[in-house]
Design a protein around this nucleic acid. Structure first.
Lengths: 194, 194
DNA sequence: CTTTAGTTAGACCAATTAGTCTAGTTTTAT
DNA sequence: ATAAAACTAGACTAATTGGTCTAACTAAAG
């Protein structure tokens, strides 16, 4: 601790952006350093390696940001369907998300086969989402809002379909296409409505 | 031409596998060379660079393979729905596809932001699939099999949802999960049936 | 003040990487 | 058989990369 930690913060911010845009191998440390305006010595004081830096980006920046973004919690006055609807619709509204795709996803695709630590860190994130999403769906069944169905399957469907859309979005998507995509998912879900 | 081209073929095969498993940056030329059992001189005789080699892999291996795999053409005795059904179901059956994800996709995620040539080559592939898929859907409408609907949107939905499933599949999927995923898509499509 | 831990600074190093070069070998055409 | 082209071979090069090292600066604590 002490002093200010401003270098550490700058490094995490710069590394996040670089890795988001160009991936792990596409982001040279020198470039991250330059963007952050921080010398090499500082970086290796705060982080033991490039890998450690990017792993810190995942844990301290990306995962929390996604947690906040996908607020898979039912608000008090909200039905389960409304909660899912809000969440799914939310995805297509986020500009950088639609433009650059999911930041975790890009890292995962590039790194999960090369490094076990990345594999773990990243898969943990997705597993969390599915669990939470499923919880909302289950609560809808408990409330008698939905008939009984395989919520695990459906949660996975929502996540994978949305991620597919997100990840292909740089080449395909307009925000209108996103709306339609969300609509398809919700249409399916509404079939389970009692 | 001349002689046999066996080195070129070996190089394409080895490069495909390496890049499929470890991505572009994860595959050192030396490793590809070793796997192929071909010396460096041969490689640089046949290909001007690593990039040219991998681009050739995309054009001569991956895209044709996908073309063949996603046979988006209606057989004579087949309804449009059956054609889509066959195609979508087909995805979850392919072992390496389910295990490693879509080979084009991985390259795209890693390289499209770094290199324009990759960007073009890869996006061309996806655009083709959507066009073909759409053609099948349109023919279904023409035949009076489906009511009229936005086939472009739906084609994109099928592609993005399937790719999302494929790409997350290394961390998520069982083949049963894949079946269910296909079922969801077909369920949606069947709503347009006349 | 002075000490000490924390942090900055960037020149330097080692390793890895893609890519070159030239000498040789094989194939094909004449 | 011989010449020309195609291809093989791998040691070597140049550049980029992540990572190290030591000197200096800064901030609080005694």
């Amino acid at each position: 601790m002490s002093k200010d930690n401003i270098s550490r913060i700058k490094l995490l911010d710069a590394a996040f952006l670089e890795v988001y845009k160009f991936g792990y191998h596409g982001s040279a440390t020198a470039k991250i350093l330059k963007e952050a305006g921080v010398p090499k010595g500082s970086m290796y004081h705060h982080f033991s390696s490039k890998k450690a830096l990017v792993l810190a980006v995942v844990k301290e920046r990306i995962l929390p940001k996604m947690d906040e973004f996908f607020h898979f919690e039912r608000a008090q006055d909200e039905t389960a369907f409304e909660c899912i609807e809000r969440t799914v619709r939310h995805i297509g509204i986020n500009k950088p998300l639609v433009t650059y795709g999911c930041p975790l996803y890009r890292l995962m695709v590039e790194m999960s086969s090369l490094d076990e630590d990345f594999d773990k860190a990243v898969n943990h994130g997705y597993a969390q989402f599915i669990i939470r999403l499923r919880r909302v769906l289950d609560s809808g069944i408990d409330d008698g809002e939905f008939q009984s169905f395989d919520t695990q399957e459906f949660a996975e469907f929502i996540i994978t379909a949305s991620w597919g859309r997100l990840s292909l979005s740089p080449s395909l998507s307009s925000s209108t296409a996103f709306k339609k995509h969300a609509q398809f998912i919700l249409q399916l879900l509404s079939q389970y409505k009692v």
